[in-house]
Write a protein that binds this DNA or RNA. Sequence first.
DNA 1: CTCTCCCGAAGTGTCGACACCTTGCGAATA
DNA 2: TATTCGCAAGGTGTCGACACTTCGGGAGAG
Lengths: 234, 234
Amino acid sequence: MTEAGVEDLRKELLFSALRGSDGDSSLAFTIFRELATSIVEGRLRPGHEVNSAELARRFSTSRTPVREALLLLERESLVIVPPRRRPYVSPVDMRQVREIYEIRGSLYGLVSELVVARATDEEIDGLRAWQKVLADDAERGDVHGYFWHNVGFRNAEASLSQNGELQRRLSSLGLQMHRFRHLSLSLPGRLLHSVADHERLVNAYADRDAPLAAAVSRSLVLRGYRAIERSGQV
Amino acid sequence: MTEAGVEDLRKELLFSALRGSDGDSSLAFTIFRELATSIVEGRLRPGHEVNSAELARRFSTSRTPVREALLLLERESLVIVPPRRRPYVSPVDMRQVREIYEIRGSLYGLVSELVVARATDEEIDGLRAWQKVLADDAERGDVHGYFWHNVGFRNAEASLSQNGELQRRLSSLGLQMHRFRHLSLSLPGRLLHSVADHERLVNAYADRDAPLAAAVSRSLVLRGYRAIERSGQV
DNA sequence: CTCTCCCGAAGTGTCGACACCTTGCGAATA
DNA sequence: TATTCGCAAGGTGTCGACACTTCGGGAGAG
């Protein structure tokens, strides 16, 4: 699992949110991906106004594909497009963070139940492999690696749920979450707690204990929320 | 609660899915609402090809607003827009039905937990009032009324969860679900089971019993799924 | 008779233009 | 000086047009 592997996960994150929308060609989608990345990674600040004419110049296109890109961004709740007014990068406040974490906690609880019901033993071994990588990252204090490998673990779980709609919704939520999620893991002591939870989760999978897996999975998400809440930042 | 009240709920259903998108004026949105209604109510069959040029003629506009409307429909998973190909009304298969019910069950479980935690006693009394209307509909065998009052009950619950993101996602799911949900309730005996579950749910609210409320709420959704599954129709 | 290739009809993606609306600055007024 | 009104600049929503792609049928080869 090299640094290149981490880079792949980064691409994958944005890719999966795309699925079900336009093809990956088309100007609109290219612009969408570019802007989505900028927003998620914080280069475009909340509240920043996005001007369709200016974007059209920047990407050397007309305003039509830009408009469509803005609609795609709105669908991911990254941009707000008020009627007849300038679109702007959607703000993130503490309330929205809480709301998203609540939803995510519930849905990952569901994922865990479905994994218990549907994954093969080999697939659960695969999850354990991910978990080992996480433990290793934590031991080395590699927050960046931990962050993205965690994304990988989550994606793997979601895929094992055998519920495509669920996967799509989670990746959409994930896109939004990555605007503030890094805050959670950079707090001292978080990594070790998180590692312990992951281990408990994988064990619950191996024991085919659906209620326990769901509870651990959910508390894992909520622990992340409480960390952000306590830090007071957003 | 007259027939007009039912009609209002119908509008509300489609309205709430709109929120967060374009304003309610704008041609694109008008076209979106019109087509969404047609699809949800079954006048536009799954697989039916939608031609942007023809729609433009029908609504006396250019193709630009039509294209945007199609993107909005795609966001609600009502239409599939393959790149460079004709868009068509998205098909519904048994797998997708299962996936959506699984998600909805989980999210309504969350709603119930949040209602227990956040709703006032008066608000819970309000839910009991809805429940009484449902019981009345069931006794009279009024499937149509029951169907839409059920939507009202669900919306009321969602609103009490004090989680706007959750509300938005549920109403989006609800839009999709209404393409096949009516199948569930028209099965014999369903209404009475459903009424009993609603009563247990409201009682759990009154007792502030979060785990019970969540479990009942979820099983209520899943029972609907199993009814469709057994009927074999889609 | 079947299969392949080609071509025309039709549809999509993109473009530049135009009218209307919003917004912020500055002039006119009290 | 503070406040209101009006206007100009800039932006959005919509339009009609054009090139490229896809799809289906029909001609021609085997």
